[in-house]
Computed example of a mutant assay.
Amino acid sequence: MSTDVKTPLTFRRYPSTTALQCFETAARHLSFTNAAQEMHMTQSAISKQVAQLEEMLNLSLFYRTPHRISLTPAGKTYYLEVLEILKHIEAATTSLMSNNDNSEVLKIVSHPTFCSRWLMPALNGFGRAHPLINLNIKELAGPFFSEDQNVDVAFLYGDGIWGGMESIKLFDEYNVAVCHPDYLAGKAPCTSNIAQCTLLQLSSRPSAWYEYFRQQDIRIEGTFVGPRFDTFHTTISAALLGYGIALVPLRLVAPELQSGALVRAWNYAAKGRGAYYISYPLSLGNSHKVKVIVEWISTYLQHSNDPQQDIECAW
Protein backbone atom coordinates (compact mmCIF):
# COMPACT_ATOMS: atom_id res chain seq x y z
CA MET A 1 0.00 0.00 0.00
CA SER A 2 1.52 3.24 -1.08
CA THR A 3 0.96 6.64 0.46
CA ASP A 4 1.22 9.87 -1.50
CA VAL A 5 3.67 12.22 0.11
CA LYS A 6 3.70 15.84 -0.94
CA THR A 7 7.11 17.05 -2.00
CA PRO A 8 8.15 19.96 0.22
CA LEU A 9 8.73 23.31 -1.44
CA THR A 10 12.34 24.07 -2.15
CA PHE A 11 13.60 26.48 0.50
CA ARG A 12 14.31 29.92 -0.87
CA ARG A 13 15.98 32.62 1.09
CA TYR A 14 14.13 35.92 0.89
CA PRO A 15 14.98 39.14 2.71
CA SER A 16 12.65 40.17 5.50
CA THR A 17 10.22 43.05 5.02
CA THR A 18 12.04 44.88 7.80
CA ALA A 19 15.35 44.61 5.93
CA LEU A 20 13.74 45.91 2.73
CA GLN A 21 12.12 48.81 4.60
CA CYS A 22 15.42 49.73 6.25
CA PHE A 23 17.23 49.63 2.90
CA GLU A 24 14.52 51.66 1.11
CA THR A 25 14.48 54.32 3.81
CA ALA A 26 18.26 54.58 3.95
CA ALA A 27 18.46 54.74 0.15
CA ARG A 28 15.81 57.46 0.00
CA HIS A 29 17.54 59.61 2.63
CA LEU A 30 21.10 58.51 1.76
CA SER A 31 21.56 58.51 5.50
CA PHE A 32 21.41 55.76 8.12
CA THR A 33 20.78 58.44 10.77
CA ASN A 34 17.73 59.89 9.03
CA ALA A 35 16.48 56.40 8.21
CA ALA A 36 16.73 55.46 11.89
CA GLN A 37 14.67 58.50 12.87
CA GLU A 38 11.94 57.65 10.36
CA MET A 39 11.88 53.96 11.28
CA HIS A 40 12.09 54.64 15.04
CA MET A 41 15.13 52.39 15.28
CA THR A 42 18.74 52.97 16.21
CA GLN A 43 21.30 53.82 13.57
CA SER A 44 23.22 50.64 14.33
CA ALA A 45 20.07 48.57 13.86
CA ILE A 46 19.45 50.12 10.42
CA SER A 47 23.07 49.56 9.46
CA LYS A 48 22.92 45.94 10.64
CA GLN A 49 19.76 45.22 8.64
CA VAL A 50 21.32 46.66 5.48
CA ALA A 51 24.59 44.77 6.07
CA GLN A 52 22.69 41.48 6.46
CA LEU A 53 20.79 42.23 3.27
CA GLU A 54 24.05 42.87 1.41
CA GLU A 55 25.50 39.64 2.80
CA MET A 56 22.48 37.66 1.62
CA LEU A 57 22.64 39.25 -1.84
CA ASN A 58 26.43 39.03 -1.96
CA LEU A 59 26.40 42.59 -3.30
CA SER A 60 27.30 46.01 -1.99
CA LEU A 61 24.27 48.30 -2.07
CA PHE A 62 26.00 51.40 -0.67
CA TYR A 63 29.36 53.13 -0.95
CA ARG A 64 30.32 54.10 2.59
CA THR A 65 32.59 56.98 3.59
CA PRO A 66 33.08 58.51 7.06
CA HIS A 67 30.61 61.33 6.32
CA ARG A 68 28.08 59.97 3.82
CA ILE A 69 26.68 57.00 1.96
CA SER A 70 25.66 56.68 -1.68
CA LEU A 71 24.07 53.96 -3.73
CA THR A 72 26.12 51.63 -5.89
CA PRO A 73 24.80 50.91 -9.40
CA ALA A 74 23.36 47.64 -8.06
CA GLY A 75 21.89 49.55 -5.13
CA LYS A 76 20.13 52.03 -7.43
CA THR A 77 18.56 49.22 -9.44
CA TYR A 78 17.53 47.31 -6.34
CA TYR A 79 16.10 50.43 -4.70
CA LEU A 80 13.62 51.00 -7.56
CA GLU A 81 12.53 47.37 -7.48
CA VAL A 82 12.19 47.27 -3.70
CA LEU A 83 10.19 50.50 -3.77
CA GLU A 84 7.65 48.91 -6.11
CA ILE A 85 7.47 45.78 -3.95
CA LEU A 86 6.76 47.80 -0.81
CA LYS A 87 4.12 49.84 -2.64
CA HIS A 88 2.37 46.62 -3.70
CA ILE A 89 2.47 45.29 -0.15
CA GLU A 90 1.05 48.55 1.18
CA ALA A 91 -1.69 48.65 -1.46
CA ALA A 92 -2.66 45.00 -0.88
CA THR A 93 -2.75 45.47 2.88
CA THR A 94 -4.76 48.69 2.69
CA SER A 95 -7.22 47.12 0.25
CA LEU A 96 -7.74 44.10 2.48
CA MET A 97 -8.21 46.22 5.59
CA SER A 98 -10.67 48.59 3.91
CA ASN A 99 -13.04 45.90 2.63
CA ASN A 100 -15.30 43.56 4.53
CA ASP A 101 -15.93 39.93 3.65
CA ASN A 102 -19.10 40.73 1.66
CA SER A 103 -17.70 43.54 -0.49
CA GLU A 104 -16.22 43.55 -3.97
CA VAL A 105 -13.57 45.78 -5.50
CA LEU A 106 -14.33 47.16 -8.97
CA LYS A 107 -11.08 48.12 -10.70
CA ILE A 108 -11.54 50.90 -13.26
CA VAL A 109 -9.07 52.61 -15.58
CA SER A 110 -9.71 55.82 -17.51
CA HIS A 111 -7.93 58.65 -19.26
CA PRO A 112 -7.25 61.43 -16.70
CA THR A 113 -9.33 64.26 -18.18
CA PHE A 114 -12.24 62.00 -19.06
CA CYS A 115 -12.09 60.61 -15.52
CA SER A 116 -12.19 63.93 -13.70
CA ARG A 117 -14.59 65.75 -16.02
CA TRP A 118 -17.08 63.07 -17.07
CA LEU A 119 -16.62 59.83 -15.14
CA MET A 120 -16.56 61.36 -11.65
CA PRO A 121 -19.87 63.21 -12.15
CA ALA A 122 -21.31 60.05 -13.70
CA LEU A 123 -20.35 57.98 -10.65
CA ASN A 124 -21.73 60.47 -8.13
CA GLY A 125 -23.96 58.50 -5.75
CA PHE A 126 -22.71 55.08 -6.87
CA GLY A 127 -21.15 54.31 -3.49
CA ARG A 128 -24.36 55.11 -1.62
CA ALA A 129 -26.44 52.98 -3.98
CA HIS A 130 -23.98 50.08 -3.97
CA PRO A 131 -22.12 50.11 -0.63
CA LEU A 132 -20.71 46.60 -1.16
CA ILE A 133 -18.88 47.58 -4.34
CA ASN A 134 -15.72 49.56 -3.65
CA LEU A 135 -14.33 51.53 -6.59
CA ASN A 136 -10.62 51.47 -7.32
CA ILE A 137 -10.05 54.04 -10.07
CA LYS A 138 -6.73 54.48 -11.85
CA GLU A 139 -5.98 57.27 -14.32
CA LEU A 140 -3.61 56.49 -17.17
CA ALA A 141 -2.75 58.85 -19.99
CA GLY A 142 -1.90 56.45 -22.80
CA PRO A 143 -3.16 53.21 -24.32
CA PHE A 144 -3.43 51.14 -21.20
CA PHE A 145 -5.48 48.01 -21.67
CA SER A 146 -4.14 44.58 -22.37
CA GLU A 147 -5.65 41.22 -21.50
CA ASP A 148 -3.04 40.46 -18.86
CA GLN A 149 -3.86 43.57 -16.81
CA ASN A 150 -5.90 43.26 -13.65
CA VAL A 151 -8.74 45.54 -14.76
CA ASP A 152 -12.50 45.04 -14.51
CA VAL A 153 -13.75 48.01 -16.53
CA ALA A 154 -11.98 50.47 -18.84
CA PHE A 155 -13.30 53.71 -20.26
CA LEU A 156 -11.61 53.95 -23.64
CA TYR A 157 -11.51 56.17 -26.69
CA GLY A 158 -11.16 54.53 -30.08
CA ASP A 159 -13.00 52.32 -32.54
CA GLY A 160 -14.50 49.96 -29.97
CA ILE A 161 -12.37 47.00 -31.02
CA TRP A 162 -9.96 45.74 -28.38
CA GLY A 163 -8.79 42.15 -28.16
CA GLY A 164 -10.57 40.08 -25.51
CA MET A 165 -12.93 42.96 -24.65
CA GLU A 166 -16.64 43.58 -24.86
CA SER A 167 -17.23 47.26 -25.66
CA ILE A 168 -20.40 49.33 -25.32
CA LYS A 169 -20.46 52.68 -27.07
CA LEU A 170 -21.21 55.64 -24.83
CA PHE A 171 -21.15 58.53 -27.31
CA ASP A 172 -19.34 59.99 -30.30
CA GLU A 173 -16.75 62.69 -29.87
CA TYR A 174 -17.24 66.22 -31.17
CA ASN A 175 -14.37 68.66 -30.79
CA VAL A 176 -14.90 72.39 -30.39
CA ALA A 177 -12.47 75.30 -30.44
CA VAL A 178 -12.60 77.22 -27.17
CA CYS A 179 -10.78 80.16 -25.66
CA HIS A 180 -10.95 82.76 -22.92
CA PRO A 181 -13.72 85.33 -23.62
CA ASP A 182 -11.13 88.10 -24.02
CA TYR A 183 -8.72 86.14 -26.21
CA LEU A 184 -10.17 87.02 -29.62
CA ALA A 185 -10.68 90.69 -28.80
CA GLY A 186 -8.96 92.74 -31.49
CA LYS A 187 -7.98 89.66 -33.52
CA ALA A 188 -9.14 88.83 -37.00
CA PRO A 189 -10.90 85.48 -37.43
CA CYS A 190 -8.37 82.70 -37.29
CA THR A 191 -9.39 81.31 -40.66
CA SER A 192 -8.37 84.55 -42.33
CA ASN A 193 -5.22 85.20 -40.33
CA ILE A 194 -4.04 82.26 -38.29
CA ALA A 195 -0.82 84.09 -37.42
CA GLN A 196 -2.77 86.18 -34.92
CA CYS A 197 -3.94 83.11 -32.98
CA THR A 198 -2.09 80.49 -30.95
CA LEU A 199 -3.42 76.99 -31.50
CA LEU A 200 -2.92 74.87 -28.40
CA GLN A 201 -1.82 71.37 -29.37
CA LEU A 202 -2.39 67.95 -27.76
CA SER A 203 0.69 65.73 -28.05
CA SER A 204 -1.31 62.55 -28.68
CA ARG A 205 -3.31 64.20 -31.49
CA PRO A 206 -0.80 66.21 -33.53
CA SER A 207 -3.10 66.51 -36.57
CA ALA A 208 -6.26 67.50 -34.66
CA TRP A 209 -6.29 71.12 -35.84
CA TYR A 210 -5.54 70.07 -39.43
CA GLU A 211 -8.54 67.70 -39.32
CA TYR A 212 -10.72 70.40 -37.76
CA PHE A 213 -10.16 72.78 -40.66
CA ARG A 214 -10.08 70.03 -43.32
CA GLN A 215 -13.63 68.98 -42.36
CA GLN A 216 -14.69 72.55 -43.16
CA ASP A 217 -12.81 72.53 -46.49
CA ILE A 218 -10.53 75.27 -45.18
CA ARG A 219 -6.86 75.24 -46.19
CA ILE A 220 -4.55 77.17 -43.91
CA GLU A 221 -0.93 76.97 -42.82
CA GLY A 222 0.33 76.58 -39.29
CA THR A 223 -2.15 74.02 -37.94
CA PHE A 224 0.68 71.97 -36.40
CA VAL A 225 2.32 74.94 -34.68
CA GLY A 226 1.69 75.87 -31.05
CA PRO A 227 2.43 74.87 -27.45
CA ARG A 228 1.97 71.14 -26.86
CA PHE A 229 0.40 69.51 -23.82
CA ASP A 230 0.02 65.91 -22.67
CA THR A 231 -3.62 65.99 -21.59
CA PHE A 232 -6.88 67.73 -22.41
CA HIS A 233 -6.95 68.91 -18.80
CA THR A 234 -3.77 70.96 -19.21
CA THR A 235 -4.89 72.19 -22.62
CA ILE A 236 -8.17 73.44 -21.13
CA SER A 237 -6.26 75.08 -18.26
CA ALA A 238 -4.05 76.89 -20.78
CA ALA A 239 -7.11 78.15 -22.64
CA LEU A 240 -8.62 79.41 -19.38
CA LEU A 241 -5.43 81.39 -18.77
CA GLY A 242 -5.60 82.97 -22.21
CA TYR A 243 -2.68 81.08 -23.77
CA GLY A 244 -4.61 80.47 -26.98
CA ILE A 245 -7.38 78.39 -28.52
CA ALA A 246 -7.89 74.78 -27.45
CA LEU A 247 -9.53 72.07 -29.51
CA VAL A 248 -11.22 69.75 -27.03
CA PRO A 249 -14.18 67.34 -26.80
CA LEU A 250 -17.39 69.24 -26.11
CA ARG A 251 -18.38 66.99 -23.22
CA LEU A 252 -15.12 67.64 -21.41
CA VAL A 253 -15.42 71.41 -21.54
CA ALA A 254 -19.20 71.80 -21.13
CA PRO A 255 -19.01 73.26 -17.58
CA GLU A 256 -16.69 76.09 -18.68
CA LEU A 257 -18.90 76.88 -21.68
CA GLN A 258 -22.02 76.93 -19.52
CA SER A 259 -20.41 79.23 -16.94
CA GLY A 260 -18.90 81.54 -19.56
CA ALA A 261 -15.34 80.90 -18.39
CA LEU A 262 -14.65 79.77 -21.97
CA VAL A 263 -16.39 80.60 -25.23
CA ARG A 264 -16.54 78.93 -28.62
CA ALA A 265 -14.03 80.56 -30.94
CA TRP A 266 -16.02 79.24 -33.92
CA ASN A 267 -19.34 77.44 -34.03
CA TYR A 268 -18.13 74.39 -35.95
CA ALA A 269 -17.85 71.08 -34.08
CA ALA A 270 -15.56 68.51 -35.68
CA LYS A 271 -16.58 64.88 -35.35
CA GLY A 272 -13.70 62.81 -34.00
CA ARG A 273 -12.40 59.66 -35.60
CA GLY A 274 -13.35 57.58 -32.57
CA ALA A 275 -15.94 57.38 -29.82
CA TYR A 276 -15.96 56.73 -26.09
CA TYR A 277 -16.69 53.23 -24.81
CA ILE A 278 -17.10 51.34 -21.58
CA SER A 279 -15.22 48.08 -22.02
CA TYR A 280 -14.64 44.98 -19.94
CA PRO A 281 -12.92 41.60 -20.43
CA LEU A 282 -15.10 38.96 -22.08
CA SER A 283 -14.40 36.71 -19.11
CA LEU A 284 -16.27 39.17 -16.85
CA GLY A 285 -19.43 39.32 -18.93
CA ASN A 286 -21.48 37.66 -16.18
CA SER A 287 -19.78 39.48 -13.31
CA HIS A 288 -22.26 41.14 -10.94
CA LYS A 289 -20.11 44.20 -10.33
CA VAL A 290 -19.53 44.75 -14.06
CA LYS A 291 -23.25 44.47 -14.79
CA VAL A 292 -23.95 47.01 -12.05
CA ILE A 293 -21.50 49.63 -13.37
CA VAL A 294 -22.70 49.18 -16.97
CA GLU A 295 -26.32 49.66 -15.88
CA TRP A 296 -25.37 52.69 -13.77
CA ILE A 297 -23.55 54.41 -16.65
CA SER A 298 -26.40 53.62 -19.05
CA THR A 299 -28.94 55.15 -16.66
CA TYR A 300 -26.75 58.21 -16.16
CA LEU A 301 -26.58 58.80 -19.92
CA GLN A 302 -30.35 58.52 -20.23
CA HIS A 303 -31.02 61.13 -17.56
CA SER A 304 -28.11 63.55 -17.86
CA ASN A 305 -28.08 66.81 -19.79
CA ASP A 306 -26.40 66.05 -23.10
CA PRO A 307 -24.33 68.96 -24.49
CA GLN A 308 -23.95 67.07 -27.80
CA GLN A 309 -27.62 66.44 -28.50
CA ASP A 310 -28.14 69.33 -30.90
CA ILE A 311 -24.87 68.59 -32.68
CA GLU A 312 -25.55 64.87 -33.11
CA CYS A 313 -29.07 65.50 -34.41
CA ALA A 314 -27.61 67.65 -37.17
CA TRP A 315 -25.39 64.83 -38.48
Rank of each mutant, 00 (worst) to 15 (best):
P227W: 00
M120F: 12
K107I: 00
M120V: 14
I220K: 05
R68C: 08
R214Y: 12
Y243L: 11
Y212G: 06
S207F: 10
M41S: 12
F62W: 05
F171L: 05
P73M: 01
S259Y: 07
S207C: 05
M165E: 02
N34I: 00
A270D: 09
S146D: 11
L156T: 15
L301M: 15
A26D: 04
L199N: 05
T25I: 04
L132C: 09
D217L: 04
V178Y: 09
L199A: 08
Y277Q: 05
S2Q: 09
L135D: 03
A239V: 08
A246Y: 05
A238C: 13
P227V: 00
L53W: 05
L123S: 02
N134H: 03
S259N: 10
I108E: 01
E166F: 07
Q149V: 11
H40R: 14
M120W: 04
P307I: 02
S44I: 09
T33L: 04
K169P: 08
V153H: 06
M1C: 08
T25N: 06
R214N: 15
D182Y: 06
F32E: 02
V109S: 10
C197G: 06
F144A: 14
I297P: 10
V294Q: 06
V109M: 10
G127I: 03
S167D: 03
F114E: 10
Y280K: 10
L262V: 05
Y174N: 11
A51N: 11
Q309K: 15
W296R: 02
L184I: 12
N58C: 10
E104T: 09
K48G: 13
R228W: 07
P206I: 04
I194Q: 13
N100S: 10
I236V: 15
P15T: 01
L282T: 15
E256V: 05
Q201C: 09
T198F: 01
L135W: 02
W162C: 05
F145N: 12
N150V: 11
V225G: 02
Y276V: 15
P15N: 00
T3F: 09
G242L: 01
I236N: 11
L200W: 07
P73Q: 01
M120E: 13
I218L: 08
R205T: 15
M56A: 14
E256K: 06
G222D: 03
E221Q: 14
I245W: 04
I236A: 11
R228M: 10
R219K: 14
G272C: 03
A314M: 08
S287N: 08
R214V: 14
R219M: 09
V292S: 03
T18L: 07
G244K: 01
S44M: 09
F126H: 03
H180F: 00
S304M: 12
E81Y: 09
E211S: 12
L119Q: 05
W162I: 08
S31R: 01
S298F: 01
H288K: 11
A154I: 01
